[in-house]
Design a protein around this nucleic acid. Structure first.
Lengths: 125, 125
DNA sequence: TCCTATGTTCAACGTCTATTGAACAATCGA
DNA sequence: TCGATTGTTCAATAGACGTTGAACATAGGA
């Protein structure tokens, strides 16, 4: 659990892989929440997404999101904080991430993107 | 082969389904070519994509693209002409289609989007 | 009318994907 | 040091996906 997981370089990021990653409802919700945190210059760790799926299932989706280049993981103690690779995404696919996130926000009702209750308190240690 | 295939209404179009459709390289190439034709106010029929895959495989991908709401099929004789549902896409997911197409154009080298030779001649009957 | 061209539908197949629970590794606090 | 917490890895499963070829349906031309 100590080594920093593998991330692709900016140039290795592929469009079909990214779109495939975003096409899963759970991963879309993760990306959406990370985008919200990004606006507050904050980070989220794995446990913050426990409302979306089980632990091992989440780890699976996190790995997918890392491998496709959408997000980055920073190890800190037993926690792993994650954030979007915003600059890399905007450089490779200008406007794509914002279009997806805005579209998701408009459809927040049908997509299960919401677990606001867990992030407003700011119970980060 | 006569009945017009099913298309979802604008409101029935779902973001994850659209992203999933765009994540397949063959479907991405189809959408890219349709976007190029759109600029010339022209249409393409199934056979124009024969460089991408076999007939039945293409029919499978066309069905996916129709069912997710990305494109529309118009039956004319033995041909079926298709075009992007641009207005519906822009209404539901503003900027998304353009971001994807522009990103695909930038990566035209790694994605196999190109079969220019078949469309420049304008051998439409 | 018959033959051809255009696409779709069907069945079959191998592969990939998402999900689950159990086991494991690493860190923090008492 | 010991137990609790956090998150990953592994094996197994069920289902979905992409691909293929054969069969089918429809329309156009000789």
């Amino acid at each position: 659990m100590s080594r920093t997981p593998h991330h692709p370089t900016r140039e290795q990021i592929e469009l079909p892989t990214v779109l495939d990653c975003l096409s899963d409802p759970i991963r879309l919700a993760i990306v959406y929440q990370l985008a919200q945190q990004e606006r507050v210059s904050s980070e989220l760790c794995c446990g913050d997404f426990s409302a979306l799926a089980g632990k091992s299932n989440l780890a699976y989706h996190f790995a997918k999101l890392r491998e496709c280049g959408l997000m980055q993981t920073r190890v800190a103690g037993t926690n792993r904080f994650m954030r979007l690779r915003r600059e890399d995404m905007d450089a490779r696919f200008p406007g794509l991430l914002d279009a997806v996130i805005n579209s998701a926000a408009r459809d927040a009702g049908r997509l299960q993107l919401l677990f606001e209750c867990e992030t407003v308190g700011g119970e980060r240690s």
